[in-house]
Computed example of a mutant assay.
Amino acid sequence: MCSTHGERMARLTQAIEDLAAEGLAGLPTETLVERVAGIWSLVEGLDPEIARSRSRYTTPDP
């Protein structure tokens, strides 16, 4: 499925607004990690350069 830049931006905006509305304090850590990862995925869909450079910012699992 192919979506427009505007549709992807709207999904990203909604995901951020939803997370902000729920608040971070009450979310279990696993849920928070999952939600933030989903937001990063949306960001990467908007800007492929971020997806390419993201590996520089991750740490390998021990």
Rank of each mutant, 00 (worst) to 15 (best):
residue 5 H to Y: 02
residue 55 S to K: 15
residue 57 Y to W: 10
residue 49 E to I: 10
residue 6 G to L: 08
residue 4 T to H: 04
residue 46 L to Q: 07
residue 40 W to E: 06
residue 11 R to W: 07
residue 6 G to E: 15
residue 57 Y to G: 04
residue 17 E to D: 09
residue 41 S to I: 01
residue 44 E to K: 14
residue 50 I to R: 15
residue 3 S to F: 15
residue 5 H to M: 02
residue 24 L to N: 01
residue 6 G to A: 14
residue 19 L to R: 06
residue 60 P to Q: 14
residue 16 I to V: 15
residue 2 C to Y: 07
residue 61 D to A: 15
residue 17 E to H: 10
residue 8 R to I: 13
residue 13 T to G: 02
residue 54 R to F: 12
residue 44 E to Q: 06
residue 35 R to H: 05
residue 48 P to T: 07
residue 59 T to M: 11
residue 51 A to D: 11
residue 51 A to K: 11
residue 46 L to V: 07
residue 46 L to T: 06
residue 47 D to T: 06
residue 62 P to L: 11
residue 7 E to N: 04
residue 23 G to I: 06
residue 55 S to V: 13
residue 22 E to K: 13
residue 43 V to G: 02
residue 37 A to F: 03
residue 60 P to T: 08
residue 43 V to H: 10
residue 31 T to L: 08
residue 30 E to F: 03
residue 10 A to G: 00
residue 34 E to S: 12
residue 2 C to M: 11
residue 60 P to S: 13
residue 23 G to C: 08
residue 16 I to M: 12
residue 30 E to W: 02
residue 15 A to V: 06
residue 19 L to V: 09
residue 22 E to G: 06
residue 26 G to P: 00
residue 56 R to M: 15
residue 28 P to W: 08
residue 36 V to M: 09
residue 4 T to P: 10
residue 12 L to P: 03
residue 18 D to H: 08
residue 53 S to Y: 11
residue 60 P to W: 04
residue 18 D to A: 12
residue 5 H to I: 01
residue 19 L to Y: 07
residue 21 A to F: 02
residue 45 G to H: 09
residue 35 R to Y: 05
residue 24 L to E: 01
residue 10 A to R: 06
